[in-house]
Simulated assay, not measured.
Amino acid sequence: MAIRYELIPDEQITRVKHLCNELMSYQKSLATVRPELFNGMSFESRMVPSVKNAKANYIIAAMDGDEIVGYVYSNVSPKEVYSNEFATFFDMDSVKGNDVGCLSQFYLKEGYRSMGIGSVLYEKSKDWLDSFDDIHDQFIYVSNGNVAALQFYKSKGFKVSHQILDGFIIVLRNT
Rank of each mutant, 00 (worst) to 15 (best):
S161E: 08
E6Y: 06
R4Y: 09
D99G: 03
A149H: 06
D99T: 07
R173H: 11
L165M: 15
V51A: 09
Q27Y: 07
K156V: 07
L150G: 10
G116K: 12
D66R: 06
V72I: 14
F168P: 00
S42V: 13
R173W: 08
M47Y: 11
D166K: 11
I140D: 01
T88D: 13
S104C: 15
A149G: 10
G40L: 10
G65A: 12
F152Q: 03
Y82N: 05
F89S: 04
I135S: 02
E123L: 10
N98K: 09
I68Y: 07
I60P: 01
V76R: 01
M63K: 06
C102K: 06
T14K: 11
G167K: 07
L23C: 06
Q12W: 00
E44K: 15
G157Y: 14
C102Y: 05
Q151P: 10
A31C: 14
E85R: 11
G118T: 03
N75H: 14
E85Q: 09
I59M: 08
V171Y: 04
E11S: 12
A149I: 04
I59A: 03
D93C: 02
V120Y: 05
R34V: 02
F43M: 09
G65R: 14
L37W: 12
G101S: 11
E22L: 11
Q105N: 12
Y107F: 15
I169Y: 13
C102A: 14
Y107C: 01
N146Y: 14
L30P: 01
F152C: 08
R34G: 01
Y58Q: 03
L30F: 13
N84D: 11
F90H: 07
Y122T: 03
S119W: 02
S119P: 00
Y58R: 06
L121Y: 13
N98L: 02
S50P: 00
S155L: 11
F89G: 00
I3L: 04
N146F: 13
V16D: 00
K55N: 06
Y71G: 00
S143Y: 13
D99Q: 11
R46K: 12
I3H: 00
A61K: 05
V120G: 00
P9F: 07
R4E: 11
L129I: 11
S114M: 10
L7T: 06
V76P: 04
F86G: 10
E44V: 14
K109V: 01
P35G: 08
G167I: 06
G167M: 08
F152L: 08
L129W: 01
E22F: 07
S119G: 15
G101F: 06
Y122M: 10
E85T: 07
V76D: 03
F158Q: 02
R173S: 05
M115W: 09
S119A: 10
S119R: 07
E11M: 07
H162A: 04
S83P: 01
S131D: 12
S114Q: 12
K28S: 05
G145K: 12
E67W: 09
K55Y: 02
N144S: 15
